[in-house]
């Protein structure tokens, strides 16, 4: 039950994009096509989940015992950077079309706030997420996976909406980012409703 609550909260209530504003650059930049949104979602899910687990292990086994938690930010960003490098190599090797679709944003997955944000929230700021519960690796994994699914879900829905939107005329100054933001606003309003369920 606890794990379900964590997962539900992570996917809907505390939706990483619409509520916590993590990972907005790729959200607005990449999500113009459903296919690339899905790929991005998959890549981010992989990176977020694994880096959160690694961050949690590093934090509880190294940083906390040696009382150097102030180094968290540096340590985590390096871990994440290495990971992103891996994913980038992986995609480049196995899916050239996907690689070209993600374009400039793929290297910037390193600087995707969602990845570092989740890692930090699950460790340094764990009371914000888990309350009094001292999270185990399983809790962190579920949380990070939930967050990623929430990210993938929103980014996919959003790209679907934007694809449809392309068919309609929009005033010049509202094109692109502005209309995307208004769309995000409406989606965020809808997601606020999930808060009532928990």
């Amino acid at each position: 039950m606890e794990l379900i609550a964590i997962a539900f909260g992570a996917i809907f209530v505390n939706n990483v994009v619409l509520k916590q504003f993590y990972g907005l650059c790729p959200f607005l930049g990449v999500s113009t096509k459903k296919s690339s949104a899905l790929s991005m979602g998959a890549a981010v899910t992989f990176v977020i989940t694994l880096s959160a687990i690694i961050a949690h292990l590093l934090y509880t086994l190294v940083l906390e015992p040696y009382d150097i938690t102030y180094l968290s930010t540096i340590v985590f960003i390096l871990v994440i950077a290495s990971f992103v490098q891996l994913v980038e190599m992986f995609i480049k090797r196995f899916s050239a079309p996907l690689y070209s679709a993600l374009g400039v944003y793929l290297p910037l997955i390193t600087t995707n706030c969602a990845v570092l944000g989740v890692a930090i929230d699950a460790t340094v700021n764990k009371t914000k997420i888990f309350g009094d519960l001292d999270p185990t690796v399983l809790h962190v994994a579920i949380y990070a996976f939930g967050i990623s699914i929430g990210y993938a879900l929103v980014i996919f829905l959003f790209s679907a909406i934007r694809e449809e939107m392309d068919a309609y005329p929009i005033k010049k100054n509202w094109e692109g980012i502005p209309i995307a933001l208004i769309t995000a606003f409406i989606m965020a309003m809808i997601f606020v409703g999930f808060g009532g369920i928990v």
């Binding site: 209530v13 505390n14 509520k19 009371t127 914000k128 997420i129 309350g131 009094d132 808060g195 009532g196 928990v198």
Partner: peptide, 10 residues
């Protein structure tokens, strides 16, 4: 501490 609408409230 308890779960509020969208945050842990202490």
């Amino acid at each position: 501490q308890f779960q509020g609408f969208q945050s842990q409230i202490k």
